[in-house]
């Protein structure tokens, strides 16, 4: 467990992750490994622990036991978290996109993008503005730089949220059901942005109910239920030939 060989291609490794909420064990010893440039899709029924697992990666929740390493550095080693600068440096490698966007409503789109680089990295506005503009162009919202989040559609807001996370230049992006709060006709534009990111070899972990997206874009799919990984595999074999009964039942329900 702790003596994992440093493998320079592994971006995120979680080993034997355990987590309880007041006695209720919601993660029962999860192992995952995400290599650089991979897109890991996590699927599973409601309450299976997908969000909790993702939120443990960036310390929005804390694990009870297990180890988490990002780019070979231990964020948590056998249940004990790194602290101070080390923790901050490791967490700085991660970016997160939420189901509810969580944009800063009192700031314009551009200000949302500039805020963290300026406040956290101490960059000057003119140092970060070019990247911010480039990211807005990438998510197709150059013409919305001066809008407030409330003036945008949900799909546009989520694309801004992706750009905002990217402005911190993370090495791994975490997505928690990024399209679940969107009207069906708006999910496409967000998934397209995510596909483009994947094509640029951004390492991504995506919790999603979008089976078509998982099938096409993922390098690997994990199916979770009741705090366990029930089955995992490459998307083709996972979706074409699921082995476990629970997986089959879940996939039948999703179609």
């Amino acid at each position: 467990m702790g003596n994992t060989r440093p493998d320079s291609n592994v971006m995120l490794r979680m080993t034997d992750i355990r987590k309880s909420f007041s006695g209720n064990e919601v993660l029962k010893g999860i192992d995952i490994e995400v290599r650089k440039g991979e897109l890991l899709a996590i699927i599973g029924p409601s309450g299976s622990g997908k969000s909790t697992l993702l939120r443990c990666v960036n310390m929005l929740e804390t694990i009870d036991d297990g180890s988490i390493s990002i780019e070979g550095e231990f964020l948590a080693d056998k249940g004990v978290y790194a602290t101070g600068d080390k923790a901050r440096r490791i967490l700085g490698c991660t970016g997160m996109v939420f189901q509810q966007f969580n944009l800063f409503p009192h700031m314009t789109v551009m200000e949302n993008l500039l805020e963290a680089p300026m406040q956290v990295k101490g960059m000057k506005r003119k140092e970060i503005q070019p990247l911010a503009e480039e990211l807005l162009a990438k998510v197709g919202l150059s013409d919305r730089a001066d809008y407030y989040p409330s003036q945008l559609s949900g799909g546009q807001q989520q694309r801004v949220a992706i750009a905002r996370a990217l402005a911190m230049k993370p090495d791994i992006m975490l997505f928690d059901e990024p399209t679940s709060a969107l009207d069906p006709e708006l999910t496409g534009e967000v998934l397209k942005t995510m596909r483009e990111l994947a094509e640029e070899h951004m390492t991504m972990v995506v919790v999603t109910h979008e089976m078509a997206f998982a099938r096409e874009a993922a390098s690997k799919v994990i199916f979770m239920a009741d705090g366990n990984i029930v089955e995992q595999g490459k998307p083709e074999e996972f979706f074409e030939h699921p082995r476990e009964e629970r997986t089959k039942a879940f996939l039948r329900n999703m179609l």
Binding site: M96, Q100, N102, F104, A116, Q119, V120, A165
Partner: peptide, 14 residues
């Protein structure tokens, strides 16, 4: 203020 605002700020390193 929704909890998500704190979480977004935290994940951005603030």
């Amino acid at each position: 203020i929704p909890k998500g605002q704190y979480e977004a700020a935290k994940t951005l390193g603030m």
